[in-house]
Simulated scan of single mutants.
Amino acid sequence: MKKYILAAVMAVGGLVFTVKAQVKTSSQEVVPELVKQRETQKKAIISSYMGMKNGLVISDTQKTASSATEFSAALSQFKFKKLTLQQMNMATSARISIKALADQIAASSSIDDQRKNMEKLSEELWLIIDKLKPENTVVYQQKCPMTGVTWVSNDKKIENPYYPKNMLTCGEVTGEK
């Protein structure tokens, strides 16, 4: 809580009065709005990631690119909070790398290139997913056992974004957060 003290000197009929007023800003008034804004940012990050994944499942390069652009923008606006210096450095490095991969996905018109970048992006995203997922949201790390590639999903149902034609349902849940 911040306190501001205003002091004023008034002269009335030869008498001098000192008037002090305190203005308080309560963190309780500001915090719910900031928490709500932060949760909205987290939802945008996860939603746009799922858009990329789902775009790859249906082999739609435009949908994947559009979602990658949204993901990159949402990730850029997000600020990490309550981390140690070491955690902040790791999370910031991961964000830079993830954003660069998302930008490459957005710029690519090749579904194969988009999938290759998504493999790397998904691995790195999983390392910091706890900091990015909204409250009361469960996400799953899924893996294709035949190829070893992973992705993040908001559903236990397997829809392999890397090999949807031949191995759409090939995969298993390997993690949950």
Rank of each mutant, 00 (worst) to 15 (best):
V57H: 06
A91C: 11
E33R: 12
R115D: 06
Q22S: 12
E124K: 15
P145F: 13
S59V: 08
N154M: 09
T84I: 09
T150F: 11
T147N: 07
S110W: 11
L121Y: 02
L132T: 06
A91G: 05
I98T: 07
M52S: 05
Q87S: 12
M146Y: 06
T137V: 12
Q41K: 11
M50Q: 15
S26V: 01
F78N: 05
I111C: 08
K36M: 13
I96M: 10
K36A: 15
E29K: 13
K36G: 06
S59I: 06
E123I: 04
S72K: 13
L121Q: 01
V139C: 11
S108D: 10
C144W: 03
W126S: 07
S97H: 10
A68Q: 09
F71C: 09
M88K: 08
T147P: 02
L56N: 00
Q114N: 07
T64N: 01
M90K: 10
M50H: 06
V23H: 05
Q77E: 09
I105M: 11
F80D: 01
V23C: 02
N117D: 15
M52W: 00
A100I: 02
K63C: 00
A94F: 06
L125D: 07
K99H: 06
Y49G: 05
V19E: 05
M52H: 03
D130F: 03
A68P: 07
S27C: 00
E33L: 14
L101M: 08
Q114F: 03
Q41P: 02
S59L: 12
N136L: 11
L75H: 02
S59M: 14
Q41V: 00
V23M: 05
Q86W: 05
A65G: 15
A94V: 04
T40A: 15
M52N: 03
V35Q: 15
T69Y: 00
Q37R: 13
S72Y: 02
E123D: 12
N54C: 01
M146E: 03
K156L: 12
S26Q: 03
Y49V: 06
A44Y: 09
T150Y: 13
Q141L: 14
R95Y: 05
L85N: 05
R38T: 11
S47H: 04
K81G: 00
M50D: 15
S48V: 08
S26Y: 02
D155T: 14
Y140D: 11
I96H: 08
I96G: 00
A74W: 09
I45G: 01
V31D: 12
K79F: 01
R38C: 04
